[in-house]
Deep mutational scan, measured.
Amino acid sequence: SLTLTVRGEEAVRRWYKWAQAHNLEVEVETHGDEYVLHIK
């Protein structure tokens, strides 16, 4: 499992696509303009 902090929706989309390509689940938490992604 992997936890990432990114800024901006574009980065979130990029990681989301990456995770889907690897059959992984993604949980997204929003903290202001930062997003915490939990990839499992």
Rank of each mutant, 00 (worst) to 15 (best):
E10V: 08
L4R: 04
V28K: 04
R14I: 10
Y35V: 06
A11G: 05
N23G: 15
N23Q: 08
H22N: 11
V6R: 01
L2Q: 05
H38C: 10
V36P: 00
Y35G: 01
R7L: 09
K40G: 09
V28S: 03
I39Y: 02
V12D: 00
W15R: 01
E9N: 06
I39K: 00
H22W: 07
V36T: 11
K17V: 11
K17I: 13
V36H: 06
V26T: 03
V36C: 08
L24R: 06
E25V: 14
R14A: 13
D33A: 07
D33S: 08
K40S: 12
V28T: 06
V28Y: 06
V28E: 03
V6L: 05
L37P: 00
E34L: 15
E34K: 11
H31V: 12
S1E: 14
V6I: 09
T3E: 06
W15I: 13
V6Q: 02
R14K: 12
T30K: 15
L4K: 04
K40T: 13
G8C: 07
V36G: 01
Y35F: 12
Q20W: 10
V12C: 13
G32E: 06
V12N: 01
L4D: 01
E9L: 15
H22L: 10
A11R: 05
R7M: 10
G32M: 05
L37R: 00
E27T: 14
T3K: 10
V26W: 06
T3Q: 08
E9Y: 13
L37E: 00
R14N: 08
L2W: 15
W15Y: 05
E9P: 09
L24F: 14
I39N: 00
L4N: 02
V6A: 03
L2A: 04
V28M: 10
L4M: 09
V12M: 15
T3Y: 05
D33V: 06
S1H: 14
L24E: 01
L37N: 00
E10Q: 09
R13F: 08
Q20H: 10
G8S: 15
E34F: 15
E25I: 14
G32Q: 05
N23E: 07
E29I: 11
A21M: 14
E9K: 13
T30G: 09
R13Q: 13
E34R: 11
H38V: 11
G8I: 03
L2T: 05
L37T: 00
H31A: 09
Y16Q: 15
A19I: 07
W15D: 00
R14Y: 14
Y16G: 03
E25N: 10
R7Y: 13
H38E: 03
L2E: 03
N23H: 11
L4W: 04
L37I: 14
L4P: 02
Y16I: 15
R14F: 15
H22Y: 08
L4I: 15
V6K: 02
Y16S: 09
G8H: 06
E9F: 13
K17M: 13
K40H: 14
T30I: 15
E10S: 09
T30L: 13
L24D: 01
L37S: 00
L24Q: 03
E29C: 11
L2D: 03
N23K: 08
E10D: 12
Y16C: 14
V26N: 00
Y16K: 15
W15K: 01
T30F: 12
E27Q: 12
A11T: 07
L24V: 06
V26D: 00
V26F: 14
E34G: 07
L37F: 04
N23Y: 07
R14V: 08
A19P: 00
S1V: 15
A21K: 11
L2M: 11
E29A: 07
E25Y: 14
L4S: 02
V36S: 03
D33Y: 06
T5Q: 07
H22E: 04
E34I: 15
H22V: 03
E25K: 11
K17Y: 10
N23V: 03
R13K: 13
D33N: 10
E25S: 12
V36Y: 06
D33L: 07
W15Q: 00
E34M: 15
V26Y: 07
H22I: 03
V12I: 08
Y16A: 09
